[in-house]
Design a protein around this nucleic acid. Structure first.
Lengths: 330, 330
DNA sequence: CTACCAAAAGACAACGTTGCCCCTAACTTA
DNA sequence: TAAGTTAGGGGCAACGTTGTCTTTTGGTAG
């Protein structure tokens, strides 16, 4: 590859002058600058990043460890949010996928240490508690979409409780009175927060909690998610007679649409449906399209990157709001 | 950070000896090796990758340019296939997302040149023709899930025609006789290949093409995809009276399930449904679950990486087979 | 004891940059 | 005219490794 010295020879200046031009040092005569730039162009010179890194003692590398326990499509937005910030600030986002079986967290961290990463974003693919090796305390680290019990790291997570309150509140505001909330497994932090938020929405408006039915219909057993959403929906419609159903996630809403169609109920007319996630194409594919609370993945990615960029050291626990995406189902 | 010289001082040897131990050079006395390893452990030394790169004149970097025109969830498998190979062979996969608006291809390529990437994988998020800058000819490049008109690059794409033939063949073998294929826009290469494959399956078995109805029901207009799948399904069922419907993609199959339910037809009993993609959760969420041809994204990622790893220079156009995933709908 | 040899380990330059220091020439000021 | 200032640019070391060459060590044969 062509080096800075090749350019210098071609332009007839000292190689240091080329370095100055490349790094936009103003103390170069316009005439020489021109000459150098022409040579750079002619030879196709590009600075060698590895050499820059060794000399500058700055790697410009931010590590992104993606813990892909579950493969949920839209979580890619988390990476994208971080990556776009990295690009804008001329940093390298080094993305490492880990999973339980083949690619371990320890190996990923070691890798990032070798690259002298200046910070690490650890992102979980769903909102949950994780445990991390001690070595991560040696380097600025942010957790996105997850948290530890030790509380030593800055974290950014979705504000589940606010989301529950917002969507239930918006349902009440639209005139729905009896709401059945078919929740996820309550061992999941998201389910807990949303439940609390739903209740708060009722309480704030002075509505009777008699009109709110909450039930977990997706349960984890032996690492498998088991959905009894269809059955539960039939029962709850018969027994509780809701005028709206709130689903714990969009795929569940899709199942509910099938149930309602089989019962001859029209979504958006006979019964309202709301949901969480904004999962890929599902909300738009359903007819009528699904009103849902979009998870702030992109925003968490950006937040995490900016935290590192600003060289913050405060151990905050930031909660970002969901976005209510109103469509035809509510 | 701790350097090789720090370790040398701690262990009481020359820094070159430490280098030898770290690089598994056998010409070190076991006794000294032990000492050095203890010091490495004690100080937490990790080789500086940037310095290694400058000296070795090998970057070990493979670039991955992800052209995310459409955001399709499972395409992440393409990245994963490449990344797992990279990890295994101790290379760096540098993933760069580009999109029309903000992050240009030229910038991404420049970035990779600066890192002295030893190869580039250019992956499109759906199977289509792309046009690439000339600068990519300077560096080994593979196209995954796309191709150019110039034909200067090695490519790996899904074998659309074989996929069409396989699934239609398997439908015929199961006894379905009249098949309606609700295809994607025929300007899409995938739609063309699958159509040809479907016809070939009929011809190979000597079945009359009278029993095969093919129609494009998802059309691109002004960059927008417009689906008239629901309407078309109603019509085709009334007019053509198929005993099985093949859908151009899983989201379309989901729409068809709604149509069939509203018509009182039971999928898998009254009518068979097949599809293409294995799109995220959709096939498993439908009841009965959907038989579909899974795109070989993971395999294309691996293939592309291995092509570069083997330092091949032949301009091949490799076609990888889909995987038929049989579920309850056929 | 000397000569020789192989194993082991040290010395030093090199990779392509940037940081620091210094030199030169031209210009300004007294 | 002499001294001081400043813009512009060159020289050289340094970053943390690895490659090449040389030296040291210890053992063995003559």
């Amino acid at each position: 590859m062509v080096t800075i010295k090749d350019v210098a020879k071609h332009a007839g200046v000292a190689f240091k002058t080329v370095a100055r031009v490349v790094n936009n040092d103003p103390t170069v005569k316009p005439e020489n600058r021109e000459k150098v730039l022409r040579s750079v162009e002619a030879l196709g010179y590009r600075p060698n990043r590895a050499a820059q890194m060794t000399r500058r003692k700055k790697s410009g590398v931010i590590g992104f460890i993606a813990d892909e326990l579950l493969r949920i499509p839209y979580t890619f937005d988390l990476i994208r949010g971080a990556q776009e910030m990295a690009w804008k600030h001329n940093r390298e986002l080094m993305v490492l996928n880990i999973n339980e079986h083949k690619y371990s967290l320890e190996a990923a961290v070691d890798h990032l240490f070798q690259h002298r990463a200046e910070g690490i974003i650890y992102a979980s693919m769903y909102h949950r508690q994780v445990s991390l090796p001690d070595s991560l305390t040696q380097i600025p680290t942010v957790l996105a979409n997850c948290y530890t019990s030790c509380g030593r790291f800055a974290t950014v997570v979705p504000d589940e409780e606010l989301a529950g309150e917002q969507i239930v509140g918006s349902m009440l505001d639209k005139g729905y009175r009896r709401i059945a909330f078919l929740n996820l497994d309550e061992r999941i932090i998201a389910a807990q927060g949303r439940k609390a938020g739903a209740i708060r929405a009722f309480e704030k408006r002075g509505e009777s909690l008699q009109n709110l039915h909450i039930e977990s219909v997706i349960v984890e057993q032996d690492g498998q998610l088991i959905s009894r959403a269809r059955l539960a929906a039939c029962e709850v419609i018969k027994q509780f007679k809701p005028d709206a159903i709130l689903c714990g996630q969009d795929p569940m809403a899709m199942e509910i649409y099938f149930v309602l169609q089989s019962l001859g109920l029209k979504v958006g007319e006979d019964i309202g449906i709301g949901s969480f996630d904004n999962w890929d194409l599902i909300p738009e594919l359903l007819q009528p399209s699904l009103t849902t609370m979009a998870l702030p993945h992109y925003e968490m990615g950006r937040w995490a990157f900016n935290y590192l960029l600003d060289e913050r050291t405060d151990v905050v626990a930031s909660k970002l709001p969901f976005r209510l995406i109103s469509r035809g189902s509510l």
